[in-house]
């Protein structure tokens, strides 16, 4: 295989990595918000439930969570949902790994939503009471105070920890190969196994590095954009 062919082969895998990255970010980031609000709720049972979920999801390796999501429907209910999706999509649309990818997306979204929720919670709780009270004495509603006063200050404060988490996310996508999803590392391992080529495995690092480089530039742009105010 030529260098270009290897690159194209790995790029196919990296597309899957990017798909996992994008879906996790697009679904996990909004999902983190209700979880954060539950964790801050004054209603004790809801708060406790939310804290326990966050504890479990953050306390168990993501790889194990992928296994659990993927295997539990089959083991517990004798209904291997994701294998069935795999087969269905392969036969009807010729799409490979669809069920496995869905399982990975679910595991990743839940996992990252919990991490994001803690970042949101930290950001929201770091805003001083005075900001809320200043809004209230001006006759604003709770929702106006949150949307018009607190939110942007929270966004400013959570950009650095979110950046960290987002950069971790693209590298975590490699975990999908534990259930044989053809992301970039899995592709490289396949080359090692079938063509006895080990260098593509190391070459995959370049793909991650380039993507993380782009992310870093974008995120620091966002950070700069919010640097016009302090607080």
């Amino acid at each position: 295989m030529t260098f270009l062919e290897v690159t194209a082969f790995l790029l196919d895998g990296f597309k899957i990595s990017l798909l996992i990255f994008a879906v996790t970010l697009l679904c996990g980031a909004p999902l983190g918000l209700p979880i954060a609000f539950c964790s801050m709720s004054k209603f004790k049972p809801l708060k406790a439930l939310s804290k326990v979920i966050v504890w479990i999801v953050r306390g168990v390796p993501l790889m194990l969570q992928i296994f659990i999501i993927y295997y539990v429907p089959g083991l517990l209910f004798d209904f291997p949902l994701f294998s069935k999706i795999d087969i269905f999509m392969l036969i009807n649309y010729g799409i490979e790994d669809a069920g496995r990818i869905v399982a990975v997306l679910i595991a990743f979204t839940i996992n990252y939503a919990c991490y994001f929720s803690e970042i949101y919670r930290g950001g929201i709780e770091s805003i001083s009471r005075g900001q809320y009270e200043a809004g209230y004495v001006l006759g604003l509603t709770q929702s106006q105070v949150f949307r018009k006063i607190v939110l942007k200050q929270v966004v400013k404060r959570i950009v650095p920890p979110m950046s960290n988490e987002i950069i971790t996310l693209i590298k975590d996508t490699a975990l999908a190969n534990c259930i044989m999803v053809a992301e970039i590392i899995k592709q490289a391992k396949e080359l090692a196994a079938t063509d006895a080529m080990v260098w593509p495995l190391f070459y995959t690092g370049v793909f991650y590095l380039i993507f993380v480089g782009i992310l870093t530039i974008l995120l620091s742009k966002l950070e700069k954009k919010l640097s016009y105010f302090r607080g």
Binding site: S128, G130, Q131, E133, A134, V137, I149, K152, Q153, K156, F229, R230, G231
Partner: peptide, 11 residues
């Protein structure tokens, strides 16, 4: 109400 700590909206 004017607060001791101003509480202006920084953004």
């Amino acid at each position: 109400l004017v607060f001791q700590s101003f509480n202006l909206f920084p953004q």
